[in-house]
Design a protein around this nucleic acid. Sequence first.
DNA 1: CAAATGCCTTAACCTAGATTAAGAAATGAA
DNA 2: TTCATTTCTTAATCTAGGTTAAGGCATTTG
Lengths: 179, 179
Amino acid sequence: MQGLNDILNLDKNAKTRFVKKGEMLLREGDESSLAFYIEKGLLRSYTIDEKGKEHIFSFASEGWIIADIDSQEFNHPAELFIDCIEDSEIVVFDRKCFKLADLSEQQLRENANLLARRIAVLQKRVIMLMSVSAQERYSTFLKSFPKLVNRVPQRMIASYLGITPEALSKIRGQIAKGK
Amino acid sequence: MQGLNDILNLDKNAKTRFVKKGEMLLREGDESSLAFYIEKGLLRSYTIDEKGKEHIFSFASEGWIIADIDSQEFNHPAELFIDCIEDSEIVVFDRKCFKLADLSEQQLRENANLLARRIAVLQKRVIMLMSVSAQERYSTFLKSFPKLVNRVPQRMIASYLGITPEALSKIRGQIAKGK
DNA sequence: CAAATGCCTTAACCTAGATTAAGAAATGAA
DNA sequence: TTCATTTCTTAATCTAGGTTAAGGCATTTG
């Protein structure tokens, strides 16, 4: 994962901000190339469909970056909302800086690393969504993000897994009484 | 999309190969950092689950690159199989070269571009898999890849969409008789 | 503190898509 | 060409997970 120092090198204007639970940092439709490095706390990115239902695309806690890379890369307005699940301390920086001609080789390499890791996560996620049951997806989530489980509300975990809170509750019940 | 010239610059050992329909280029478990640029033809990458069922992760036709970026980035054995849907002409190159210290800034920038675009595709795919019906996913596929529709067998399109061939056939039937 | 709002669970019912099966059409090999 | 194999379709049945609804806990907020 890309660290804070790297970001401060990439964008000299990066600023630390303290944000409150529920505070919205990016809205669908925004023309923004901002990204957020989480110093402390927990954020999420998500879409809202025509029926008003939220679909969580990612969580990001300490040491992670959250942004709408898709729309930024193609200069589209944001598809994702980003807001805070906990009061958080974040570093706000501009991903436009990642494209500037005056980046060093070292910085370019770090950027490529960041992107490659994100691809890895997404590749796994797509394969999971296509091939395994909700129960297995939940088990995998528990193994992959053990520290998030107690910080993220159930309904958001359900949304991340692509199921309803009711379905997750049922699955948890089944696991509790020994499968 | 990264072009052929860029690849030849990145890996001087890149070689053109003519491969037959059905020919397997990468197997799950392989320790390989090969990637394939498609000059002409059509390849696919996919997993096979415990029940022996195939799940297609991606197609790649003229001008595209196909590889198991996840396992390559983390030096894991391959999770994906890659084989040919049509007789194809491809350029085989080694993604290890993308990490070497002597790449030019220009080449690093092209690599970052390639990765960012892949992220964009995957972000859209994850959101689709989580939030829209099989029928809508098929419609989106038709719009996104109109040239592939007649070259890829239905059952593979179904697999890419995360549904069974029977379900896709039913959907096509419904669309044919005016929704 | 109490009221209010959200969060989690349970349970009854419903539906999209899976499974199974079988026949028709296309493809390929000899 | 013929036979065999794979692909596509249709239809009957089944099931994971969605929907709706209602009650019990938490946690905000005044």
